[in-house]
């Protein structure tokens, strides 16, 4: 399940930053430090993920950028925002 979230996070980042593909993104890639995602882009990313992931509800007030540095830790945070269980 969490790998599905990871994949969705990466797909959404590729869309957000208009990248050609996901080859430059790994779980260790830094959201701000490597990708340059600032608070405005982060907000867009939240909204994109809410569109792309079923049952996902993000309360941005509870997610502070300083709490996740990498794509991997970001995906972990997102996984905690999925309500109920997600069908496989």
């Amino acid at each position: 399940m969490s790998t599905q979230i990871e994949a969705q996070v990466i797909v959404s980042i590729v869309e957000l930053l208009e990248m050609e593909d996901s080859s430059a993104i790994t779980l260790a890639t830094k959201i701000e430090g490597d990708l340059g995602i600032d608070s405005g882009l982060l907000l867009e990313l939240f909204m994109m993920l809410e569109e792309n992931v079923a049952n996902l509800e993000i309360d941005p007030a509870e997610l502070r950028p300083e709490e996740f540095e990498t794509v991997g830790s970001f995906a972990k945070m997102i996984a905690t925002c999925v309500k109920g269980t997600v069908a496989a």
């Binding site: 608070s39 982060l42 907000l43 939240f46 309360d59 007030a61 950028p65």
Partner: peptide
């Protein structure tokens, strides 16, 4: 503006 990501709020 420091709170921009929290547009819901």
């Amino acid at each position: 503006h420091a709170d921009f990501a929290n547009s819901t709020g």
